[in-house]
């Protein structure tokens, strides 16, 4: 006959192990998460898992102050998610948009460089003289 206390202890250990596993899986999603909202969702999930941890530890140690910590963490996590959602809304661009913009900017820059190729070469050739001018100008000011 297994005692109730032994069953309870193993249940607590099992719960801690499962929670650690889900913590790691969620961390993987946060690190990999292709978009910002995915990561925010992962962080929201982490808060839920942390509340679970707090509940298990509170039961294991019998230290009831942990309940207040769990409530405060839940409310702070809610506020954090709301603030992140506002941030996503105010940023107003998806990751795809940002990548497309960067590509377009790079292409435009490359095109400009190509079309202005000879001029650019000429500019580098004349650069030393203009530099001299500048230096002399500055000396004049002084």
């Amino acid at each position: 006959m297994i005692s109730v206390a032994a069953i309870f202890d193993s249940a607590v250990t099992l719960a801690l192990a499962i929670l650690s596993l889900s913590f790691l899986v969620t961390i993987y999603r946060i690190v990999k998460g292709p978009t910002l909202p995915d990561r925010i969702l992962g962080l929201d999930m982490l808060v839920a898992i942390a509340i679970g941890f707090i509940a298990v530890i509170g039961i294991k140690t019998g230290y009831t102050l942990y309940v207040d910590v769990a409530i405060a963490l839940g409310l702070v996590g809610f506020l954090a998610t709301v603030a992140f959602a506002r941030f996503v809304l105010s940023r107003g661009k998806t990751e795809d948009d940002i990548i497309t913009e960067a590509r377009q900017a790079a292409a435009a820059a490359r095109k400009a460089a190509l079309s202005a190729g000879p001029d650019a070469k000429a500019r580098t050739a004349t650069a030393p003289s203009s530099g001299d001018n500048k230096i002399s100008g500055r000396q004049d000011h002084e």
Binding site: R29, I49, G52
Partner: peptide, 26 residues
Amino acid sequence: DVVTLISAALLVIGSVFALVASIGLL
């Protein structure tokens, strides 16, 4: 004893749901 067993069962079920949620996230 009954209360303790109920609590143990709730703990394990709750943590399994948390694991399922994170697998779903994945």
